[in-house]
Computed example of a mutant assay.
Amino acid sequence: MRTNLAIDPARSAALFVDLQEEHRKDCRYLVEGFDDLVLRVRRLQAAARAAGMPVFHSAYVVDPGNGGASPFHPMLEDGRSAFSDVGDPLSAICAEVGPAADEVLLIKTTASSLAEAKLPAMLKARDVEWLLIAGVWTEACIAATVKDAIGHGFRVLLVKDACGSGTAAMHQTAILNIANRLYGGAITDTDGACRLINGEAVEAWRVQGSVPLRFTYDNAASLFAEL
């Protein structure tokens, strides 16, 4: 349900997941609407930095030569990863949404940005309560990151229009799946997130009960719009 929400910017942080060049330039791995997503991320980053909020970044990079590929990871015939290969320039974070100054960039080989202890430890050292999350792909790295963030005791502020996937349907149904189990957290859009970062209160969607969003092929898009 939608309810009034305010967060303490001094106890919040922002995490931007896997905003890499391949998602707008590699035909095998394109994210629908990626350029618009990047513009929203830039707004979020600007708001977070202006508020003095810690900003973190992650990138999924696979290094098969150093044992960085899981047993069933898709590989090309020449031994390179089918995506996010360590030697591919398109694995780099998009420059306009990359780390600024001393912001942390985490290189990962699993879906979740919190799978290893490093980031949770840094967040807890800063007494972070709310973790704003945006990036790609919604059903994969975003979903895994959100799940681990909740498991570590962080409240997740998921920015629904600053995440993306291969198609709108993939993205929207993934957000709905996450929303059904976003315990302790909230969902908003870029406008709402920027207002929250600025210390304002907004109306945001928060889960109540057990799996309240029983979506179908026919109503998924409308339920997503109502979040």
Results as ranks from 00 to 15, higher is better:
His152Val: 03
Ile197Lys: 06
Leu157Asn: 00
Phe83Gly: 03
Asn4Trp: 15
Leu5Ile: 02
Arg11Ala: 02
Ala169Phe: 09
Asp148Ile: 06
Ser70Val: 14
His171Leu: 07
Phe224Ile: 03
Gly199Gln: 07
Val128Leu: 07
Gly151Val: 03
Lys147Ser: 14
Ile187Ser: 01
Val17Glu: 10
Arg2Tyr: 03
Ala144Gln: 05
Gly185Gln: 09
Ala48Asp: 00
Leu196Lys: 06
Ile93His: 11
Phe215Ser: 06
Cys163Pro: 05
Ala149Pro: 00
Leu131Asn: 06
Gln45Leu: 12
Thr110Trp: 07
Glu129Cys: 11
Arg43Lys: 07
Ala174Ser: 10
Leu213Met: 09
Leu176Gln: 04
Leu90Lys: 09
Ser210Gln: 11
Asp35Gln: 12
Asp63Ser: 14
Ala221Thr: 02
Glu129Lys: 11
Asp63Asn: 09
Lys108Gly: 01
Phe215Gln: 06
Glu200Leu: 14
Asp78Ser: 01
Phe83Lys: 01
Arg126Thr: 01
Ala220Glu: 08
Asp35Pro: 06
Ile187Cys: 01
Asp161Phe: 05
Leu5Arg: 06
Val97Leu: 15
Ala143Ser: 15
Gly184Lys: 00
Ala117Tyr: 10
Asn219Lys: 11
Val62Gly: 04
Arg214His: 10
Arg181Trp: 08
Phe224Gly: 02
Ser113Gly: 04
Ala69His: 11
Ala100Gly: 07
Leu76Phe: 06
Leu176Cys: 05
Glu22Asn: 06
Ile133Asp: 05
Val146Ser: 09
Thr145Asp: 00
Lys147Glu: 13
Gln172Ile: 13
Ala69Asp: 04
Pro64Met: 13
Val207Asn: 06
Trp137Leu: 14
Ser210Met: 11
Leu90Tyr: 02
Cys141Pro: 11
Tyr29Leu: 14
Val156Met: 02
His23Gly: 11
Met75His: 08
Arg43Met: 12
Ile107Arg: 12
Met1Asp: 15
Ile197Thr: 08
Leu196Phe: 12
Ser222Thr: 13
Leu90Ile: 04
Asp85Lys: 12
Asp218Thr: 07
Thr3Leu: 08
Ser12Trp: 05
Thr145Pro: 02
Leu132Gly: 06
Glu226Leu: 12
Asp218Gly: 02
Leu5Trp: 05
Asp161Val: 05
Lys25Trp: 12
Val31Phe: 08
Val41Ala: 04
Leu37Asp: 00
Lys147Gln: 13
Pro54Met: 07
Thr190Asn: 03
Ala162Thr: 10
Asp88Cys: 07
Phe83Ile: 06
Pro9Ile: 12
Gly192Gln: 01
Ala50Gln: 09
Ser84Lys: 13
Asp148Cys: 12
Ala143Asn: 12
Ala101Glu: 15
Leu213Cys: 09
Pro64Asn: 11
Ala95Cys: 13
Asp191Ala: 07
Ala179Val: 02
Leu132Lys: 08
Ser70Lys: 15
Ala125Tyr: 06
Leu19Glu: 03
Val128Ile: 11
Ala162Leu: 01
Gly164Val: 13
Leu39Thr: 14
Phe83Glu: 04
Leu227Ile: 13
Ala10Gln: 09
Pro54Trp: 00
Lys25His: 15
His23Val: 12
Ala179Met: 04
Leu223Glu: 05
Ala10Ser: 08
Val159Pro: 00
Asp127Lys: 14
Asp102Phe: 14
Ala186Met: 04
Asp85Ala: 08
Thr167Glu: 02
Glu22Ile: 04
Leu105Met: 08
Asp189Ser: 03
Asn219Ala: 07
Met1Ala: 14
Ala115Glu: 13
